[in-house]
């Protein structure tokens, strides 16, 4: 996986110009959602790694989105589902750009198939190098927007 700064910064690049603030926040949550459950689990408990496999698959994440949306006001549920899912599609797409030694990738059709796929362009650790620059670009953009608004 790319680090979450990279995921968030790229979600920001799409969300900032296109979406209103609350919707954008839901999109950002969706963009980090695929890593929120499995990564802490196997970083803290590495021997439970095999239990985290399902958590990074589209099927699991879609059901999780449906579950989480139930905890929002009924009038918001459709919006929550749409933007969580758009966010997680972006996340999974970015993850699919990576390469792994096994040539494996992610289980897109789990639980129906164990076949996996990735584009294999970069090692996961290569994203960390650009993360500070992406983070800085987001902060800089927000400062510029703030200054422009204040001058008006």
């Amino acid at each position: 996986m790319p680090d979450l700064i990279t995921h968030t910064a790229i979600a920001y690049a799409f969300g900032r110009p296109l979406l209103s603030v609350p919707t954008r926040v839901l999109f950002y949550v969706g963009a980090i959602l695929p890593d929120l459950l499995p990564r802490p689990l196997y970083i803290v408990f590495p021997n439970l790694y095999s239990y985290s496999i399902a958590m990074h698959t589209p099927a699991f994440l879609i059901i999780l989105t449906l579950l989480l949306s139930e905890f929002f006001a009924p009038a918001m549920q459709k919006t929550v589902r749409i933007y969580f899912i758009l966010g997680l599609i972006l996340h999974l797409f970015l993850d699919s750009l990576q390469k792994h030694l096994s040539g494996g990738g992610y289980y897109w059709f789990f639980p129906f198939s164990w076949s996996s796929f990735e584009f294999g362009l970069w090692w996961p650790d290569q994203f960390v190098i650009i993360a500070p620059y992406l983070g800085a670009a987001v902060v800089l953009n927000e400062i510029v927007i703030w200054v422009i608004r204040k001058r008006r």
Partner: peptide
């Protein structure tokens, strides 16, 4: 073999956007 670099940095950096979001 692939030598894994910056793993700790990746974990710590990832906490920042989670807190912000």
């Amino acid at each position: 073999i692939h030598i894994v670099k910056h793993r700790e940095a990746k974990i710590w950096l990832s906490i920042i956007p989670v807190a912000l979001i």
